[in-house]
Design a protein around this nucleic acid. Structure first.
Lengths: 354, 354
DNA sequence: ATGAAAGCGCTAACAG
DNA sequence: CTGTTAGCGCTTTCAT
C-alpha cells in the first residue's frame, strides 16, 4: 500500500487563506480570538478546499479524538445476534447514538466486553490505549460493574451509565423503569384488574428490581396485596415459561401479568395458550421493551416501549456537554417510556362488574 | 478536560526492554528482522506494561489506521430502525464484520451515506479525511453506485462490494443470489409445483435481477414457462401486496410463490389470507433474507437465509488480506446461502398426483 | 488578535 | 539484525 497522506491539510488551508496554521486551528475549534473577517476568510478556504481535520492528528496533539465508545455485554449481544429473534437493542443504540454523534462530528464505536471476566480491566485498557475515546456509554449490566466503573473514573473521562443510579462516578441515566412499571400496572388497575402478577428480570440488572418496585408501588397504592404474585425470571424465554406456569397454576390465578421483557411475555403467552387460556379474554398481558416481536404475536402485545434510541441520544449529548463544561449534571437524567397499546389487554373483573 | 496522554507508550517499552523504539515497532508489526530472543524480550515488556499501540499515532506515521468503514444506505437503514420490524441487516453486519475485525485488531465503523445525493463524494471525502480508514465495505445499493466506486478507486484503498459484479474496481463479493433463487425454485419443483410465481425486488439493486435469473433458470431447466408469473416489487410491504394480488388474481394462479424478501413474503401471506387461500395448503411460499419475522408468521416462513454475517466477515478478511498482499483476489468470491425449511411449503399438484 | 516553536506516539527511510 | 533521524497533521504552550 502506498504511503497515504492527507489530501488537504491545515497547511493548505493556511496557505490558501494566507494566515498561520494557528489561526486555522482556532477557526476549526472554538473560534475564539479570531477577527470575524479572518474567520470568514479561513472558513471560505476550508469550504473551497473541502478540508476536514484528521481526527488522528487532532488526537495526537492532545485534543479530542471525537470517538465515543458504546460498551455492551459481549455474551448477551452475541447470543441475540445468533438467535435472530429480532432483538433490536443494538440497532436502537445506533439509531440514537450514532446519529447524535454525527451531528457533532463524533463517531460511535461499538465495543463488546465480557462482564464475567477477570480481564475486564485489561480489555478496557487495551481499547482505551488504542482509541483514546472522549467518552463512554455503559449499558446494563456493565453500568453497575464496579471494576469498569472504577477504571473509567480513573481515566477522567465522561461516561454515562444507562440504567444505574450512578454511585461511584459517571453520569447516571435512567429509562424510568420504576415509573414505567408503575404506569403499566396502573393501566391494568384502571382496566379493572385486581390480581396482577409480575415476572421479574435477572437480578444482575438493577433495573429488574426497579421494575418490581414500580409494580409493588402501584399495587400498594390501590390497596392490593402482592403475595404470591411475583415470579422470578432472568429475561430468558425458558425462565418466562417457568414463571408464567408458577403464576397461572395457582388456585386463584391473576387476571393480568406484567412481564419484565418481551421474551418472557412471549413465553407467558405460549404458556397461557397451553393452559387453555385466551389472551386477552382470560388473561391480560403487558410486556417490557417493545422489541419487534410484539408486532408478530397473536394477539400483538401491549408493551412498555423502552426508549433506547432516545436514551442513547441523550447519553451522547451528556458526554459532549460534559466534555465542554467539565462538570456532570447535578441530577439524575431520566428518559421516560411510553405504553404502546395493542391487543393483549382486556377489561378486568372489577370493570366488568360495573 | 485535562490533557490526556498515553499511559504507556512505545518509549516505555523500549526503555524497559532496553532496545530502540524501532525494534519495538518491528515486534508490534510484522516482526521481521528481529532476533527471536530480542522479540521475546520485547514481547515480555509489552505484556508486563500492558502496552497497546495508539491507532492515532500509527495512522499519523503513515501506517495503518486499523479502521474499516462499513457503508450503508442512510434512508433505508433509518427507515428500518424507525419501523422496528426486526430487520437485522445491521446486526448481522456487525456480528460478522465487527467480530472478524476484532480478531485482527481492527475496528469497524458504521457510516450512513445517502445514495440519492449530489454530495455523496463530499460526504465520503469528509469521512475519509477524518478517519483515513484502511478499507471500506460497500453494501447494496452503494456497491454499484458509480460515484462511490470511482471515488474509492481513486483512494487506492481496498474496498469490497457486496452484491456487485465489481466492474470499475474493488473486490466483488456475492451472496449467490442467482444460485439461491434457483435452489429455492428447484426445491418447489421437487415438491411437485409447476406454476411458480416470483416477486422481484427493486431494480435499483443488481441482486434483484440475479434472483429473477435464478428463478427463470430453474423453471427453464424444468421445461416450464414463466409467462405472467413474474411480478415486480421494490422490497416494500405495499409493493408485495400489489405483486401478490397480481399473481393470485389470475385465472390459473400459481401454486407457489418465491418472494425476493421477507416483507414482500409477509405481504403475500396476508394477501393470500384475504383471498381465502391457506398457506401452505393452497399456496406454497418461500421468502428471501430470513430476517427475524419469519419465525413469527403463521405459518413460519420457509426462507433463503441471506448469510449477511458470513459475508461481512468475509469482506473484512478480503480487505485485510489485500492490505497485506497489495493485490485483489482474481475471482469473484461467493458466500453461499442455505434454505431454511419451515412451514410455508407443501407438496404441489405434480407430486400429489403421483 | 495573531504567529512561531515544540511535541504528541509512531513508523519509514536510511545508516551501520 | 539494530539504531538514528525525520516527519505525519494538529494543538498546545509561549511570544508578540
Amino acid at each position: 500500500m502506498a504511503r497515504r497522506r492527507q489530501a488537504v491539510t491545515i497547511k493548505h488551508v493556511a496557505a490558501d487563506a494566507n494566515v498561520s496554521l494557528q489561526t486555522v486551528s482556532r477557526v476549526i475549534n472554538d473560534g475564539s480570538n479570531v477577527r470575524p473577517e479572518m474567520k470568514s476568510r479561513v472558513q471560505a478556504s476550508i469550504d473551497k478546499l473541502g478540508y476536514v481535520p484528521s481526527i488522528a492528528a487532532q488526537r495526537m496533539s492532545g485534543s479530542r479524538s471525537y470517538l465515543i465508545l458504546a460498551i455492551n455485554d459481549r455474551e448477551r449481544t452475541i447470543a441475540d445476534w445468533r438467535a435472530r429473534q429480532g432483538t433490536d437493542w443494538v440497532d436502537q443504540m445506533l439509531f440514537g447514538g450514532m446519529l447524535k454523534c454525527a451531528e457533532y462530528g463524533y463517531r460511535l464505536i461499538f465495543e463488546l466486553v465480557d462482564t464475567h471476566n477477570d480481564h475486564v480491566e485489561r480489555e478496557l485498557q487495551a481499547a482505551f490505549a488504542a482509541l483514546q475515546p472522549d467518552g463512554v456509554i455503559l449499558t446494563p449490566p456493565h453500568s453497575d460493574n464496579p471494576q469498569i466503573v472504577r477504571f473509567l473514573s480513573e481515566q477522567h473521562i465522561p461516561f454515562v451509565r444507562i440504567g444505574s443510579l450512578g454511585d461511584g462516578g459517571g453520569i447516571p441515566l435512567s429509562m424510568d423503569d420504576e415509573g414505567s412499571a408503575r404506569m403499566a400496572t396502573q393501566y391494568l388497575l384502571d382496566k379493572g384488574h385486581r390480581s396482577i402478577g409480575f415476572i421479574a428480570g435477572s437480578a444482575e440488572y438493577s433495573l429488574s428490581e426497579w421494575r418490581v418496585a414500580g409494580w409493588r408501588g402501584a399495587m400498594a397504592g390501590a390497596g392490593l396485596p402482592t403475595d404470591g404474585l411475583l415470579a422470578a425470571g432472568d429475561f430468558s424465554y425458558g425462565s418466562g415459561e417457568r414463571a408464567a406456569r408458577l403464576l397461572l397454576d395457582r388456585e386463584s390465578r391473576p387476571t393480568a401479568i406484567v412481564a419484565s421483557n418481551d421474551q418472557m411475555a412471549l413465553a407467558t403467552l405460549e404458556t397461557a395458550r397451553e393452559l387453555g387460556l385466551v389472551v386477552p379474554d382470560d388473561l391480560s398481558l403487558i410486556s417490557f421493551d417493545n422489541t419487534p416481536l410484539v408486532h408478530f404475536t397473536q394477539p400483538p402485545l401491549t408493551a412498555v416501549d423502552q426508549p433506547i434510541a432516545a436514551t442513547a441520544s441523550k447519553a451522547v449529548e451528556l458526554i459532549i456537554a460534559m466534555q465542554k463544561s467539565e462538570k456532570a449534571p447535578d441530577a439524575l437524567t431520566v428518559v421516560s417510556a411510553d405504553l404502546v397499546e395493542r391487543g393483549s389487554v382486556a377489561a378486568g373483573p372489577a370493570q366488568l362488574h360495573d
